[in-house]
Nucleic acid binder design. Structure first.
Lengths: 252, 252
DNA sequence: CGTAATTTGTACGTATGTATG
DNA sequence: TCATACATACGTACAAATTAC
């Protein structure tokens, strides 16, 4: 149903014209993806859209409800239909769900800013972000702590071309909310989905030092790529997690 | 939208009666959860259901489509509506998606049966399965290999009460398909969702030996609980993964 | 191979209920 | 109180896919 999944409808296009509701749905989606309609904004009512596009209200409902299911819109009875922001609610943000056991509780994590600087592009970061290696990247380093003890150390890489003046913000700006939220609020780019690769590595050098563990001790290693509209990657992240008592939770 | 999420509709019940489509939806869901309609089975047509329940076809459509979105049913134009099986298509089965890199390809894994035996219940397995410790469990041990090299070793624990005669199957039965599929086909129990906990551990004893790695080398450790209808857990699994060249992929 | 019957998919319409401001 | 907007529920007609004849 999402952009990355099926293109069943496109196959039909060869034989028969696309359904009215589907063309409308894609037209509305384009408004959002192109930034004409921004997150939080109220869109026109069913009747208005129906009038503008010369279709029935039922057809508008179908198009709009599909976009609600896809996470592009949300509706409130009596008020209207709004553009949705980052799909990833706190529930599905794996990074920040550290648990003691499968039936245990969630730990509150504190974010600590370590550093932010411009660096030259490198692989695999540049390749995974779809940029040539000569484009500058921002490198953001952060630490996540629970009860004062470091649990996760992560390095994020973001294209300077997209995130202009990223280094003009005070460090506190990176410590008060998740990076997802900060980017959505500041640049209007919501996070639509992530790709993640889980592995285990032995702690080494700077990482071991930041996390306060012995070199050689096992760490959970997560490589992540975040995507916004139109399947465009905008962040590459490497995380190292201490998982002695708490571990990273996921629900599928 | 799923059973484990919101109960918004229940709040309304205090003030106003539940919508017709919703009561029908829950009635159809109950048929599936109670096993009256089994995975793969064709359910009655829209018109038939509408006649039986004395509601309009549009109302049946809404109820049925909601259950499609929830993963309980799927529809084929011209054929009918069928009861869906395990939600987890191969795409979302993390365990069997071992990749070289975030933009790399997927590795085909071979399943090898190691052993199956009855054991006495123990915690955390019994607790996580919602059974007292004196109930017998099955312990299934398997190995997943790529190009002959072991990548994943896992131990599954299943209640003997649910999986009667689980040990009467030949080992090959566990090597030809995923455990999800085997259980769905044999016991009619589809997997609806999983909970997983990711961590890193140092290889030790039997696990290190099975995976052919040195003791102390880092392994990805995954604890998993699988749920079927009505949020009932039916499997507890511990997996140890060698993630030197290939790692476990997830999409959110 | 075409035809008919069945089933879902699309598109339209109307009326009424409920929530918001 | 009232207008607005979404939610529910009913209905009809035709298109498209499948299957059996």
């Amino acid at each position: 149903m999402t952009a990355r999944s099926g293109n069943l409808k496109l196959i039909r296009a060869i034989e028969t014209p696309l359904p009215v509701y589907y063309r409308l749905q894609e037209a509305l989606k384009k408004k959002i993806e192109d930034g004409n309609w921004k997150p939080g904004q109220l869109i026109p009512s069913e009747r208005l859209i129906a009038g503008e596009h010369q279709v029935s209200v039922g057809t508008v409902r179908k198009a709009v409800l599909n976009l609600v299911y896809e996470g592009y819109l949300y509706r409130i009875q009596g008020k209207g239909t709004y553009v949705a922001g980052t799909k990833l609610r706190k529930d599905s943000l794996r990074y920040y769900r550290m648990m003691e056991a499968l039936d245990g509780g969630e730990a509150e994590l504190e974010i600590r800013f370590i550093g932010l600087k411009e660096i030259q592009g490198f692989d695999p970061a540049s390749a995974l972000l779809g940029h040539p290696r000569d484009r500058t990247l921002y490198e953001l380093r952060r630490l996540f702590l629970h009860d004062g003890a470091p649990l996760v150390y992560c390095e994020s890489y973001l294209p300077k071309g997209i995130f202009r003046d990223f280094d003009s913000f005070p460090p506190a700006r990176f410590e008060k909310s998740t990076l997802y939220e900060m980017i959505e609020q500041t640049y209007g780019l919501p996070c639509i989905y992530n790709h993640e690769l889980f592995g285990a590595v032995a702690a080494h050098g700077a990482v071991a030092k930041q996390l306060g563990v012995n070199a050689g001790s096992p760490l959970l290693f997560i490589e992540m790529r975040s995507f916004t509209y139109k399947d465009r990657p905008y962040e590459f992240r490497r995380s190292y997690c201490v998982t002695g008592t708490r571990r990273v939770f996921a629900e599928i």
